[in-house]
Amino acid sequence: MGEHADAAPATPAATLVVFRHDPAGGPAHILMVERSGSLAFAGGATVFPGGKVDPADTELAGAFLARTGLELDPADAAGRITAVRETLEETGLAVGLVGAIDAERAAAARRLLLDTGRLADVLEAFDWDLDFDALVPFARWWPRHRNMRVFDTRFYLADLGTGAVDVTADTTENRHLFWASAAEALRLADEKAIKIIFPTRRNLERLAQFDHFGAARAHALATPIVTVTPRIELRDGTRWLMIPADAGYPVDGEPLDQADRA
């Protein structure tokens, strides 16, 4: 049965790391979302846009794969759709979509999506289609905590280029949004200006190795995705929360009493 046999069942989820060029010429910026403190999972934490896979996402994934003949894991396809949908809902950005898209149409699409909750309705209403190539698989995290809500989360990367767009938070789940380099977000966390949970910290450390989206994309494509299941390990009498050493991360753990797991 294994050491995680009595772990809580996992809820499929997906998140999107959205890049843009730094207008000042520094390292690329990443879009961060501060979650409302009242939420049960990661309340008050700063994360990337994302959320759980809805049944409508899975349904749309199946229809898209059948229509296009694309050979892709259906769970991966559903995860990409969730990442696109959640990003549009939470930020107003139409990422991973193709068609006649401008700020006005994106805002209208967001209103429709918030009303119906179905990305399929948006695609039909605006004559848009999915652009899976715009989303680069980056990581998969699947904790096996006992007596906790567990998410099996797929991480994707996407690029806005100049990023000359306005973003606004969906205030039902988020307090505000901001752009920062990965290194800057880590600095803000170290200064206690923002709160980040263990997976977000590890992913920011990994992203901070790259100054632009192209380098991060190349790294993601060259690095096989290892499902990350954090484990507790004893080091010199101290309990550490660790991740696999071969998952592509420059830092593979920290003392358990310093780690924010949710």
Rank of each mutant, 00 (worst) to 15 (best):
A13F: 08
E34W: 05
D57K: 09
P49A: 09
L135I: 09
F126I: 07
L31T: 05
P49H: 06
D102S: 02
L93E: 01
L88S: 10
R20N: 02
E86A: 08
G96T: 04
W142K: 15
W141A: 13
V53I: 15
G62W: 09
R80T: 03
E59K: 14
H29P: 02
H21F: 01
L113E: 06
A125K: 12
G117E: 03
L112C: 04
G25E: 10
T116N: 01
L112D: 05
A42L: 08
A109S: 10
V98G: 00
R20H: 04
A108F: 00
G69S: 11
R105S: 14
D131N: 14
R140Q: 13
D76W: 00
L88Q: 09
A61M: 09
G117A: 03
L112T: 03
R118H: 13
A13V: 08
A108I: 00
A125L: 09
M32I: 08
D127Y: 10
R140W: 06
H145M: 13
H145N: 14
A139S: 14
V84I: 15
G99P: 05
T58G: 06
G117N: 04
A125P: 09
D57E: 11
F41Y: 12
R67S: 13
N147P: 00
V33W: 00
R80Q: 12
P143K: 13
P49L: 07
A77W: 05
E86T: 05
L39M: 11
D129C: 09
T68P: 10
M32T: 10
F126N: 05
I81W: 04
G50K: 12
R35P: 03
R67L: 12
D22P: 02
T58I: 03
A83V: 03
W141L: 11
R80S: 04
G37H: 10
A40I: 07
S36C: 09
G79Q: 03
A94D: 00
V122P: 02
K52V: 15
L16F: 03
I81N: 05
V33T: 02
P143G: 14
S38Y: 12
A94C: 01
V95P: 08
A77Y: 06
D76V: 13
R146Y: 12
A108R: 13
L16I: 05
G43F: 02
F19A: 02
G92Y: 03
G117S: 02
S38E: 11
W141H: 14
R35Y: 07
A94R: 00
E34P: 09
G99N: 05
G44F: 03
E71I: 07
F48W: 12
T58Q: 13
G44T: 02
D22K: 03
E90R: 12
R111K: 13
V47R: 00
H145P: 13
V18S: 05
A94I: 01
D131A: 14
R149Q: 13
T87V: 09
L114N: 07
L123H: 07
A100N: 13
N147L: 14
G96F: 02
E90L: 14
V47M: 06
R118D: 14
V136R: 04
